[in-house]
């Protein structure tokens, strides 16, 4: 099926986009969003490849991994957001700029 490869490529595109945004943006909330997009890209590649064999049911192992991955991603996001708010409370801003590193 062609669309399996379509989704695989979309997944890798999402990963690359997310990676770009993580590197480029200074704002922590944007970094958190970007990491989530990267995660979605990885999940998409995994699940798409699990459905690659025609005529058989998709491989359940990557599905199970992705489900736990989604739950871990949301809890990691919650922790990251809490840390971001803490950074904001300490430094007055939620960005990683040159000044805040000193």
């Amino acid at each position: 099926m062609n669309n399996i490869y379509l989704y695989t490529i979309v997944g890798m595109g999402l990963f690359t986009l997310g990676l770009y945004a993580v590197i480029v943006h200074a704002h922590l909330l944007r970094k958190i969003l970007a990491i989530n997009v990267m995660g979605s890209g990885v999940f998409l590649v995994l699940v798409a490849l699990a459905a690659r064999n025609q005529g058989t049911a998709p491989d359940p192992v990557p599905h199970a991994m992705v489900i736990t991955g989604i739950v871990v991603a949301v809890s990691a996001t919650a922790l990251a957001l809490a840390l971001m708010l803490r950074v904001r409370a300490k430094t007055g801003q939620a960005e990683l700029s040159e000044e805040s590193l000193e």
């Binding site: 989704y7 998409l44 699990a50 459905a51 998709p58 992705v66 489900i67 949301v74």
Partner: peptide, 18 residues
């Protein structure tokens, strides 16, 4: 997308969490 990829379990997790 998960539905299209024949992964309803994942779709459920994504629908409630994502």
């Amino acid at each position: 997308t998960w539905i299209r990829l024949d992964a309803p379990d994942v779709a459920m997790a994504e629908a409630s969490i994502g």
